[in-house]
Amino acid sequence: MSWLDRVRNAIPFVAKRETPDNLWHKCKGCGQMVFVKELEDNQHVCPKCDHHDRIGPSLRFDYHFDEDSWTVLDSPRVAEDPLKFRDSKRYIDRLKAARVATGEQDAFVNAVGTIDGNRAVIGVQDFAFMGGSMGQAVGEAFVAGCEAAIAERAPYIVFTASGGARMQEGILSLMQMPRSTVAIEMLHDAGLPYIVVLTDPTSGGVMAAYAMLGDVQIAEPNATLAFTGRRVIENTIREKLPDDFQTSEYYRDHGLIDMVTHRRDLKETLGRLVAYLTPVKQAA
């Protein structure tokens, strides 16, 4: 036995302390490590730089509905993989993987509940589900959300987060753009408001459709909002774009949206809008 082995064996063994992997979160905005509990208590907004993390439907419902007031609506069923699409993987396999990862049927979920005591329907697009891409299921869910709002005589509030249309469904995904526009007109015909909250990122066909058709347009801070990519635009017009181009603040400053609202203030803002815009129900 060498002297090194003798020294090593003489050192008392101390078991390695197990540390959970989910205690810390690296902020995508500032790169700092943030205690997960602190991040959750701050509605998934970085306490150091105010970066708004992407969150899914259940957290959106928790943050913006009154406590224990909301119920998730059933998602409409559509034909899966209508084009039998395959690239490096089969489309049906991508759907299965996304459902396992998110626990959702597709990228758009509706719920009905109250905001400061007033009825409202909220639809949330989940970027974690195939980039929040818009296919037939998303289009059907959006239409179902509009119909639920009409049945409830309540506003429809949509949180958008999407990379655009779902390429695996081809023209069927693009058909959801006019369908969603017609559904919004149904809301207007019923005298009900349609409120949009743009979150990071919202782009492509979704940006060209229901994301920019709100009666009131709100955005979370520093969200990327675009129809097409910055580099494509610069190559097309052969000009350098401003550093803040395609951000919430740029859209607000140029009159494309109404306001930029911090996540902690969103429920209060939505509560005021719902109370002000909701039709007064006539007594029986």
Rank of each mutant, 00 (worst) to 15 (best):
K96F: 09
G113N: 06
R99A: 06
K89W: 09
V100S: 10
A120I: 01
V100K: 10
R119I: 09
A120K: 07
V109D: 00
V109L: 10
G117Q: 14
G113S: 09
R90E: 12
A120S: 13
V112T: 08
N118L: 04
F129N: 02
I92A: 12
G103Q: 08
A97E: 11
I122G: 09
S88I: 15
R99I: 05
A98T: 00
S88A: 15
R90A: 11
A101I: 03
R119F: 00
R90I: 00
D106Y: 14
K89M: 14
V121I: 09
A97L: 00
A120N: 08
A101Q: 05
R119E: 15
F129H: 07
A128F: 12
D126T: 15
D106H: 11
L83D: 11
V100L: 10
R94H: 06
K89I: 05
A98S: 08
L95E: 02
N110M: 13
A107L: 07
G123Q: 03
F129G: 06
I115R: 04
R90P: 01
L83E: 11
N118T: 11
D116N: 13
R94K: 13
I122P: 06
R119Q: 12
E104C: 02
T102I: 03
R99S: 10
V124A: 12
R119A: 14
N110P: 03
D87P: 01
K84S: 14
F108W: 13
L95Q: 03
S88K: 14
G103R: 13
T114L: 11
T102K: 06
Q105N: 02
R94P: 01
F108I: 05
L83I: 12
S88G: 13
D87N: 14
G117P: 04
K96G: 07
A101R: 15
D87Y: 14
F127I: 11
D116H: 15
E104F: 12
V121S: 07
A120T: 13
K89T: 11
T114K: 14
T114E: 07
N110H: 04
F85Y: 15
V112C: 04
V112I: 12
A98V: 00
A98H: 00
A107D: 08
D126Q: 10
R94A: 05
K84Q: 15
A98N: 10
A120L: 08
N110T: 09
G113M: 04
I115F: 06
V124K: 00
D87A: 14
G103A: 09
V112R: 10
A111L: 12
R86Q: 15
I115K: 11
V112H: 02
I115G: 07
G103S: 04
K96A: 15
R86G: 07
A97W: 01
K84R: 15
A111N: 10
A101T: 08
L83C: 11
R119V: 08
R99T: 04
R90C: 00
A101M: 03
V112D: 03
F108K: 01
R99V: 01
T114G: 04
G103V: 07
A98R: 02
V121H: 10
I122C: 07
A107G: 05
A107Q: 07
A107C: 05
A98C: 01
R86C: 12
A98Q: 02
F127K: 03
L83V: 06
N118I: 05
S88Q: 13
